[in-house]
Nucleic acid binder design. Sequence first.
DNA 1: GTTTAATTAGGTATAAACACTTATTGGCAA
DNA 2: TTGCCAATAAGTGTTTATACCTAATTAAAC
Lengths: 213, 213
Amino acid sequence: MNKINILIADDHKLIRETWSYILNSDPRFQVIAECGDAQEAVELAKTKRPHVVLMDINMAPFSGLEATQRIRKISPGSKVIGVSMHSQPAYAKKMLQMGARGYVTKNSSKEEMIKAILEVNHGNKYICDEIKNIISEQLLDEKEDSPNINALTEREMQIINYIKEGLSSKEIAAGLSISLKTVEVHRHNILKKLKLKNSASLVNFINTNATYI
Amino acid sequence: MNKINILIADDHKLIRETWSYILNSDPRFQVIAECGDAQEAVELAKTKRPHVVLMDINMAPFSGLEATQRIRKISPGSKVIGVSMHSQPAYAKKMLQMGARGYVTKNSSKEEMIKAILEVNHGNKYICDEIKNIISEQLLDEKEDSPNINALTEREMQIINYIKEGLSSKEIAAGLSISLKTVEVHRHNILKKLKLKNSASLVNFINTNATYI
DNA sequence: GTTTAATTAGGTATAAACACTTATTGGCAA
DNA sequence: TTGCCAATAAGTGTTTATACCTAATTAAAC
């Protein structure tokens, strides 16, 4: 039986090395490449055609989410597993939307990671226990009136990023070549959707609630 | 020659396991305990008396900074190495202030980690190359007028926390039983000190710049 | 004991943000 | 095709924030 070929994309060198070490110690796996940025990950997926890609979400120059999406198109046979330190289900959800076949947090054990690799390689989907537990807990809470950042549109997120950087509505309007009035409407809608009072609390919400990625 | 006894404290199980695996594979090291929270780390340092402690900064219920401080008192023979994903020198500085003997980012290689352990066990201090490079770069830039959050006063930090929560100046004034005008002056001084344009960018700065820990 | 810095607070402006209404366009889906 | 929604943009207000100024009090530092 052939080994499962794995590509590791993670911007932390130590983490890449340790995973390579562990996975290569198992006769079922073969780490064929590793890299620290998303661009390289896409290129390596194209040339090396790995069976499984371990993809960290946080990477330069674009996120693991985008890299997953690209790999999905460029090498449909490669199964991507999202790996992140974030336990929020929203991350997992987004990652799966982008075409990932699995999601594992860095809280997971070695055994769970191996299980995830075997499952996705076999064509199944896999989500780690931690996320599954959190999701079920959230379902029990069931707070439908909670601010849901997923309701924000692309444009709104774009404008939030400008706001974070300290740009005024006038500057944002100039930057996006749209009317000042439009920017104001967007800002108003954002605050209304998230039930926030002003831009300061918005930035704090965005920075501390990772739910939006 | 005796092995160097190591305690690993990191809230990510996978990371603990991989380090244990790697370090135990080296005849010079012996991982004698590992844990995922700061409280346990302090207790384990007390009972196990490890030669070296690998301490992650981000942990519950209190931070690795505080745990380091406690271990320093409770088991002065144990050398603590701060391990973090943060490349800001401010983290390293704070960690060393708390009594750590070394600081290594998660971008560092396995070799660098081993070097750090050997150095601190030998009684020396060790800071990883990444941080050293950043510090030297910052010295070369030498911008004395650069935003320094350390210059913020207690009162100013207090007001920033209210701003983050979305309170208006009027509300902050009421909360602190001071004049609206005073709050406005504080806000103005904060923005001036940090060279920021508005509250949104202030909140983003505070959330993303860990310099104030 | 004099200086320095933090906190306090007033005045006087302009600029920006926020609230709410209406309305047009284009795309996508039931 | 009809209807919904995102994105666009205008009008018209009110409220807040920001930018300057001056200045008193107090505590710490030199």
